[in-house]
Simulated assay, not measured.
Amino acid sequence: MARRKKIYEGKAKTLYEGPEPGTIVQYFKDDATAFNAEKRAVIEGKGVLNNLLSEYFMTGLNNIGVPTHFLKRLNMREQLVRSCEIIPLEVVVRNYAAGSMSKRLGVEEGMQLPRPIIEYYYKDDALGDPLVTEEHIAAFGWASQQDMDDILSLALRVNDFLSGVMFGVGIKLVDFKIEIGRVYEGDFQRLVVADEISPDSCRLWDIETGQKLDKDVFRRDLGSLTDAYTEVARRLGVMPKTSTPIGKPTLIN
C-alpha cells in the first residue's frame, strides 16, 4: 500500500493528500491542547468522537443547503473533504458570555447576549490568534467585503442550525468557532464551512444543570473529556445510549 503524503499537521488533526485531485483526508488525533498549546495531553478516543460528531454536523449543514467541505467519513478517525483555501480567520459566534469575552469585558459568564455576536480572530499561533476587526481584515486583504458578507451569513446560518439541534437534546450552545474556505470552480469561487465542528470548537452546557460538555472540561480540569464528548454523541444519537467511552482497541487471542 502506497504511503500517503502528509500535507499538514495541526494540534488536533493531520491532513493527507486525498485519493483524487481536489480532495484531502482529514485524520482526527487524540491530542488535546489549551491555552495556545501550553496545556496538552493525549486523551484516548477523543479523535474518534470528534470525527463522528463533525460528520453529523457537517452532513446536517449540507442537507439544509449550507455548503461545507465535507464529502464523507472514511473510517473511525478519517474523513474525506474537499481541498479549499482557508481564509486566515477564526470566526467565533457567541450566544452567551463566556471564556475570553467574559475576561475582556468583565461580563458574567453565562449571561445571555441580546443577539449573537460575531468576532474574528487572526489565525496565527505565534501571536496567540489575536482578535481583529473588519478594518484589519480589509486593510490586510485577508477577505473582501463580499467575502465578509458571505462569512456573516454562513456563520449565522450555522448558529441557527446548531442552536436548534443542541436545544432539542437539552444542550445550550454558548458559542462556537468555525473556519471558512474558498473553493474554486472554474473562474468562480464560493465559500464553504471547513475544518471541523465538534465539542473541541464549541462551548456546550447542559440546559438544566449547567454541566460543561466541551473542551472547557480539559481546560479547567472538570473531569473526563471523553465522558463529556460521549454524552453529547449519545444525546445526538451518534452513539448508542448504552455505549461506553471509546478507548484503545482490545486484542482478543
Rank of each mutant, 00 (worst) to 15 (best):
A2Q: 13
E9G: 12
K11T: 08
A12K: 10
E17V: 04
G18L: 10
E20L: 03
P21C: 01
P21S: 03
G22L: 01
G22R: 00
T23F: 09
I24P: 06
I24H: 05
Y27V: 13
F28A: 13
D30Y: 09
A32S: 14
E38G: 00
E44C: 02
G45E: 04
K46N: 08
N51S: 09
N51D: 02
N51L: 03
F57H: 10
M58L: 15
N62K: 07
G65L: 11
G65T: 12
H69E: 00
L71A: 04
R77C: 02
R77Q: 08
R82D: 00
R82H: 11
S83M: 10
S83R: 11
C84D: 02
E85N: 11
I87R: 13
E90D: 11
V93M: 10
S102Y: 07
V107Y: 04
E108L: 10
Q112N: 03
P114E: 01
R115F: 15
P116S: 06
I117H: 09
E119A: 07
Y121D: 12
Y122L: 15
D124S: 14
D125Y: 05
A126Y: 04
A126Q: 13
P130L: 13
L131A: 14
E135P: 00
E135C: 02
Q145T: 02
D149V: 08
L152S: 05
S153Y: 05
S153E: 14
L154M: 06
L156S: 10
D160R: 07
D160C: 05
F167D: 15
V169G: 13
I171M: 15
L173I: 01
E179D: 05
E179F: 02
G181M: 03
G181V: 03
Y184T: 05
Y184N: 02
D187F: 09
F188H: 07
Q189F: 11
V192M: 06
A194L: 04
A194R: 00
A194P: 02
E196Y: 02
I207Y: 02
T209Y: 11
G210F: 12
G210I: 10
K212R: 15
D214R: 09
D216G: 06
D216S: 07
R219L: 05
R219K: 11
L222D: 05
L222P: 07
T226N: 08
D227C: 06
D227V: 13
E231G: 07
A233W: 04
A233L: 12
R235I: 07
L236M: 07
M239C: 12
P240M: 03
P240F: 01
K241I: 11
T242W: 14
S243I: 08
T244S: 14
P245V: 15
I246R: 09
K248I: 08
N253P: 14
